[in-house]
Write a protein that binds this DNA or RNA. Structure first.
Lengths: 166, 166
DNA sequence: TATTGTTATACTCTATAACTATA
DNA sequence: TATAGTTATAGAGTATAACAATA
């Protein structure tokens, strides 16, 4: 067995872990997408954008949204346009920089998001229903470690601009 | 505080856990998608389909692929068509049922997939580089529990057909 | 010149429904 | 009639590159 093959054989655990992590994420995401679609006529990217705005009542600039959501600027424009057209978010002038603006939830948008967030929480709690409190806490800690590790790796690979604000 | 609000307040841990889990999955997925795209001119759904075929050298039927990948039949047809056109997989007659066929990796497809899988493993190992062996193993066990729990929840919500073979 | 955001474009993935061929 | 798979269609999300306006 050459060096490379040996190096591979030494690391099957991480691969199994990744497949399991991804499967878990996919299953729960499937549940969330279904719920958003059929109960709220919405989608996950739209929910994620509104969730960011809910965390920042003063609003976020397009560029900030782009970094937080890890997607391109053109993409943020497209999703924001939809949400503006439906009355859930609004563009507000930024004092001192006429190129930019803040995106905020409207009053209706806050109410709409709160309804979704409540349902969303139910789906999530259901998804983890078989786990005990300690398991949930252990997982959270371990995944915090994973997040740091994975972010370093992603930055090293050249995706610097997407990771500044996570 | 009413009952509903109290019920929500009692379950913030699962929500935090889900957000962290999803973020980890997204970060690593970002890394993998970048690699597949720039180093192999491919995509994650294509990789996933080929990974299934690699696990079953005798081949899988379209319907089996659909269930395993948790996507629609039309979708599997589209991706399979691409991979057939590029010579990585082939459709083989199924004895005794002229409606169906098995999808298999071609010889070239196996070689191509092995190259991708090797690189893929490197990206994954890098993503988990900061974790110790015990952390990796603990995570794997905990996520196995999550998988079962989330699958039950997804089935209860009415997505039965997608979960038979996972 | 650099930055913020939009527009135009194209591509991938995805689901649904109607359809063909076979069981 | 039911099943396996395809086709046609539509729509969401995504990135890139060119662009306008402003800093």
């Amino acid at each position: 067995m050459d060096l490379e093959s040996r190096a591979r054989a030494e690391h099957p655990d991480e691969l199994r872990l990744w497949l399991r992590l991804m499967t878990c994420a996919q299953i729960i995401e499937k549940r969330v997408r279904m719920g958003l679609r059929f109960e709220f006529d919405s989608t996950l990217p739209r929910f994620d954008l509104m969730a960011q705005l809910e965390k920042f009542p003063k609003g976020l600039k397009m560029g900030e949204l782009s970094k937080r959501l890890m997607v391109s600027g053109g993409n943020v424009t497209a999703i924001t346009d939809q949400l503006v057209a439906e009355g859930w978010v609004q563009r507000v002038d930024v004092e001192g920089d006429r190129r930019a603006w803040k995106i905020q939830l409207t009053k209706a948008g806050r109410a709409y998001f709160n309804d979704m967030a409540k349902a969303h929480e139910t789906w999530i709690v259901d998804s983890f229903a078989d786990l005990g409190t300690k398991e949930v806490q252990s997982l959270y800690k371990l995944l915090s470690h994973v997040k740091q590790s994975a972010l370093h790796s992603l930055e090293d690979s050249g995706a610097v601009n997407l990771t500044e604000h996570i």
